[in-house]
Amino acid sequence: MALNTYKLQNSRKAIAATGYASQVPEKGVDELYAFMAIALDSKIIHMHKLLTKENSPAEAQKDYVQQVITEALAYFTKL
């Protein structure tokens, strides 16, 4: 997803996240999680799994966004 995002935006960098903000029992998703990736020049340079304990989909999404920002800042600060 991050690789396609940077291509669509004609950029050298992109951050993308995807996952579950609500349970999907029929798919065996009982624990909420997401993954984030940072792409740079057609390569994934960082990936991270996100977990949330929030129960509502809206709150889980907000939590994921905060985690993505925190993780991306931590990653870029180390460079």
Rank of each mutant, 00 (worst) to 15 (best):
A60H: 03
L79W: 10
E26L: 08
S56M: 11
A14H: 10
I38C: 01
M47K: 15
M36A: 05
E54R: 11
I38F: 01
M1G: 13
Q9V: 11
D41T: 06
A34Y: 02
M36F: 08
H46G: 00
K78N: 14
K13A: 07
P25R: 02
Q66C: 02
L73V: 14
A2I: 08
I45W: 04
I69G: 01
A58D: 15
L32S: 02
N10P: 03
T52W: 03
P57H: 05
N4Q: 15
L79E: 13
H48I: 06
Q67I: 09
T5D: 10
V65R: 04
K53D: 12
F35L: 05
A37C: 10
V68Q: 04
H48K: 15
A72P: 05
S11G: 11
I15A: 04
N10I: 01
E59L: 13
N55H: 11
V68G: 00
A58R: 12
T52S: 15
H46L: 03
Y6S: 10
L73D: 13
Q67P: 12
T70Q: 12
E71W: 05
F35K: 07
K13S: 06
L73Q: 14
V24I: 14
S11T: 13
E59G: 00
L32W: 00
H48R: 12
L8K: 15
I45Q: 05
L73F: 08
I44P: 09
S22Y: 13
Y75N: 03
K43W: 02
A60F: 05
L3P: 06
F76K: 01
V68K: 00
A58Y: 11
